[in-house]
Write a protein that binds this DNA or RNA. Structure first.
Lengths: 211, 211
DNA sequence: TTATATTTGTTGCAATTGCAACAAGTTTTT
DNA sequence: AAAAACTTGTTGCAATTGCAACAAATATAA
């Protein structure tokens, strides 16, 4: 059974008690607002309670890189990310974020919260999941051509659907940033993939034809 | 204080007891031997006790990708890696590997090992560290040109040394695979970097000149 | 110490890619 | 409903890259 949230398996009432014990604080962010501008030095972790956000970075050439898409229950923070870089988390829709100090999570609770160990375990599962996701991303980015990058990314998305259909979770502009490639070159290659019969597209709906 | 091993802070004697409790098994691998040929379906994790290894993958074009360099205390296994891919772990020197079932690590010990919670905590720290490392790798791979990939990778290596000198932990051939680029194109670019005064090289010893 | 294998260094050439620029289509804001 | 902002689609061109191939230098094995 997959862990979805760090509070999986913990009773609603107990969660509330724990949040007090953790001195957790919730904040609301409007779409396009910056949730964290510089992830370094944040000894807190953030948990997306509702809404979506992107973790992104601009390099010195002004090229944006979308490091990660965050959604409900996603966890972010220094411990989960690259230290020392100009990474920010931007709300892509209105969202609510819960901030908790990292130390509270990993240390054994002095007040003896009985659910603390469940929570630790959940964090462990989420971290494992994140590692798997990062490795997926790495697998895509380690492809040498735009065509291969697209196909391996599409393959990941199509895996969930027996008809091999999926909807891009991105605009094409964002997709290019996610794959770290030039948008126009990517559009050209998508056209080639269509011409060569690898994919069919209808807006952001894509069907993978071959295996 | 950084956690180096999953057994950090646990007494030697207690480790031995735990290993029995975990049904841990140690195995020796000679250089160039395959430690795990297909990481999927392994419900175990491996811990490098001594020696070094590479986690690698060959795509259908025969291009090798070095996913990760493993050394003493590195942990690998299904939970820490991309599922379903043809990933293998190859010894790059003689090494000793300890295998433990993942379940034993995360479940609360029925026999009441008092150090179990320390261990869970250590695993958590190691996972966090791995996430940070993966993000570093992603940062390098998300650069769009070979030059930028090289410079950002060198930057990471040079960060540890005030003189901005470092020795590549790779042969140049392996470096190209690690960066997912063509070796000859990479050599050409390294030459350009030298000509342009960005770096000085002496074999695998490199000095970063500019910032 | 020879033989064998691997790594490094180089080059021409063709293919891929990034860049710049612009038009057309959508969506969002005013 | 009009204006503004963003996304999609397209192209020529120059720069970068991958590929193939080979020689020289090192490292490893016999």
């Amino acid at each position: 059974m997959e862990v979805k949230s760090i509070f999986d398996g913990i009773d609603e009432n107990d969660i509330k008690k724990m949040l007090v014990c953790f001195e957790a604080r919730a904040r609301i962010f409007k779409k396009d607002r910056t949730i964290v501008s510089n992830i370094i030095n944040i000894k807190m972790i953030g948990i997306i309670i509702s809404g979506t956000a992107n973790m992104e970075r601009y390099d010195y050439n002004g090229n944006r890189s979308i490091i990660e898409k965050l959604e409900k229950n996603s966890v972010f923070g220094e411990v989960f990310s690259r230290l020392g870089s100009d990474i920010s988390v931007i709300a892509t829709s209105d969202c609510e974020v819960l901030f908790i100090e990292y130390e509270h999570l990993i240390k054994r609770c002095k007040k003896g919260c009985i659910y603390h160990s469940i929570l630790t375990n959940n964090v462990l599962q989420l971290l494992s999941k994140k590692i798997i996701d990062l490795n997926k991303r790495l697998e895509v980015l380690s492809k040498r051509t735009i065509r291969e990058k697209l196909l391996s990314y599409f393959e990941l998305l199509a895996n969930d659907n027996p008809k091999r259909k999926f909807t891009l979770p991105f605009t094409y502009t964002d997709l290019a940033d996610y794959l770290s490639i030039d948008r126009s070159a990517m559009m050209r290659e998508i056209k080639n993939l269509k011409d060569d019969g690898f994919i069919e597209t209808n807006g952001r709906k894509i069907t993978l034809k071959s295996y």
